[in-house]
Design a protein around this nucleic acid. Structure first.
Lengths: 116, 116
DNA sequence: TTGATATATTGATGATGGTCAATATTCCAG
DNA sequence: CTGGAATATTGACCATCATCAATATATCAA
């Protein structure tokens, strides 16, 4: 359920530019808003920040529960939202679940802003 | 009420690097989340898009009410949120209110992502 | 298999948010 | 000053969301 809208570089076969749509359509807008919704919570921003700061590139849920002041189910919930938004990647190894930034995902979001 | 968090380049007097904070603090996160909250609605994204696409660089509320399928009070409400977030600028001339993109505001948001 | 640990899911609850109808405000024209 | 037009504000309603407690699932150890 990776929802990061791809900037689809000329989806039709025209050679030279629909010139970045005159204005955002309703459906496009809905898709893009999903990504920003995922970022629109302080605790989720902190989760991203912590994962990003980790030298190993990944963190398990147990490492994420303490810094935030939230219960484990809540953290799990936020992580799911970030994964669904295409920002985090989840890998389960044994009993632990390791979360890491999807490479380029944050850059893609920056791209969304540029193509508003 | 301009809430775009400034990337305050070394707020203390240390000469060389808190090295972009180990992780996002609670207060910082709250501030940054406000901006993303403003972007986390399809209709607000479309408003930004329309204003941006306007060759004159500005649009009045009457031009924004039709494209979206919303009542005037609702559009006004969304515009206020975008202004409060520091993304749009409002200038009233006569009976009309003209909205324009705050220069560099979207780039600043992209910057927020880079400094998570 | 049994128990223990890490994580996910469910259900409920209080808070926040988007929308509209009605009303208020502000400004221009006459 | 009066009427009308553009925009803003208020109050209410319904939907979504963040959070937690309780429970379920999955994996490892003994």
């Amino acid at each position: 359920m990776n929802s990061l809208p791809v900037i689809d570089q000329a989806s039709d076969d025209a050679c030279c530019a629909p010139a970045s749509a005159p204005a955002l359509g309703a459906e496009e807008a809905k898709q893009k808003a999903l990504v920003f919704k995922a970022l629109a919570d302080p605790n989720r921003l902190r989760l991203l920040s912590i994962v990003k700061a980790e030298s190993s590139g990944e963190s398990c849920v147990c490492d994420l529960t303490d810094p935030l002041d939230l219960g484990q189910p809540t953290v799990s919930h936020h992580l799911k939202i970030l994964v669904d938004a295409g920002l985090l990647h989840r890998e389960k190894r044994g009993t632990w679940a390791y979360y890491s930034l999807v490479p380029g995902a944050l850059d893609d979001v920056a791209g969304l802003l540029a193509t508003l």
